[in-house]
Design a protein around this nucleic acid. Structure first.
Lengths: 241, 241
DNA sequence: CGCACGGTTCGGTGGGCGCCGAAGCGTCGC
DNA sequence: GCGACGCTTCGGCGCCCACCGAACCGTGCG
């Protein structure tokens, strides 16, 4: 190169992207999109490499600012550094999702279906469930899309009724629309999306399936969603009792 | 790997990110963020590699869906595939921009300053100028941020006065906030941001500096911005006559 | 105290890929 | 038609990096 990075940023952009440009690191980051903290060993098994390899990858991701590490006894817990990283990764995943990876095994297929049905996306809900909730909120006039995504006055009182605080957060946007990589449709994110997701867990509307990002709607959750949003429970079939 | 891509998407995510993970390809994509179409030769010189190398990189980017190609005589014009790609790239660039690449030469420094001052970001305005316009519009009550970014009723009539159509576009969001990688602050994007930028070019408020993404505010533009938005012209110093 | 376990570090190996120059192909202009 | 020009293809070179197993370090448990 005649002039090192003449217009600025290309080296920084490339090195940041390089952190995601490896299949193993991509698997690690996608796993951490569930918003929880994983250990190195868990990440290694999840992504199918030796622990030593995973440890090195994790180092790179931490140095690159994508992951935050926290030591506890002989464990090292890894989580995504912040919501910005999660949002950026989701946006790349959405762009990449145009052509979904081929599925070869039956078990992979069922897991994929569970994920497509309902899952957490960092700290809010995605999949059919997330989109359905967002659509229902729009239908009921709780969200407005006509010029950017907003919560209506009705929406604010609806949230308050659920006991969800609508106080303005710091830098983080109040509402944000997040494009789903399975549905290719927007769903609710931002502080409101996160609060709604947390409430759904706390109130027992949903629960995690095993240790994946997938969640299942409980019977109680089905009733609550029908009552609060008029959601048809039949849309939300699937395993939890 | 025991199970090819157990939770889906990691291979797709990695291969998409790999397209940005090379310094030359990153330079190409960043150049195309100006929203215009470049030839292979221009991109090669810009990124400092042989034409043959650039040609191969461009092939990869087109195959990956990041770029759209159009043949015209013996030229091949490249542009970003669509606004989604631009938004995703900007978001990665913003994440990567936490630590700006070191600047080594004086000319690089002045170019960088011009870029930081005012530039196009795909099809809207960014840099100090873009942020200043966005801030001024907020101050005047044309934009509201309290629960997501929206155009107020006053804002709509203000845009109409400028002759900017506020009809709802297709899938594309009406307004969108785009995080600037030099300012680390949000500025106006979406169809409104694009329309405003086009208007600024058409009305002669701004003009391109050479063939870069950087733009300069004209004297006429300074007056117009002061009149329409109360912007202090001294903030917008810099070269155009 | 000693073993089990989570994690890290280190060589060595192999494959992938970015780079170039040369040769070839199609288009434009004289 | 012929040269100039924009672009593409190909072969070869060299570097980088993802991977593993083995050795090592620290913590927790019996």
């Amino acid at each position: 190169m005649p002039d090192a990075d003449p217009y600025g940023g290309s080296a920084a952009l490339a090195s940041w992207a390089a952190l995601l440009a490896d299949r193993t690191r991509a698997a690690i980051v996608l796993a951490l999109l569930d918003g929880r903290a994983w250990t190195v060993t868990e990440l290694a098994r999840h992504s199918g490499v030796a622990v030593s390899t995973a440890s090195e990858h994790v180092d790179l991701l931490v140095d690159g600012g994508l992951l935050a590490a926290q030591r506890q006894g002989r464990h090292r817990y890894l989580r995504l550094a912040d919501g910005d990283v999660a949002a950026t990764v989701e946006s790349v995943a959405a762009a990449a999702g145009h052509r979904p990876a081929p599925v070869r095994t039956l078990s992979a297929h069922s897991r994929r279906r569970a994920l497509a049905q309902a899952r957490t996306c960092y700290d809010h809900l995605a999949g059919v469930l997330g989109v359905a909730i967002t659509d229902a909120m729009t239908r009921r006039g709780l969200l407005a899309w006509d010029r950017g995504l907003t919560v209506t006055a009705t929406g604010c009182s609806w949230l308050a009724e659920l006991g969800i605080d609508t106080a303005p957060a710091g830098r983080r946007p109040f509402v944000r629309s997040c494009v789903d990589w399975t549905q290719r449709r927007p769903h609710l994110a931002g502080t409101v999306g996160a609060a709604l997701c947390r409430h759904a867990f706390d109130a027992g509307w949903i629960r995690r399936i095993g240790s994946t990002r997938a969640v299942a709607v409980t019977d109680c959750g089905r009733d609550a969603l029908a009552h609060h949003l008029g959601l048809d429970g039949r849309l939300l079939h699937g395993g939890a009792t």
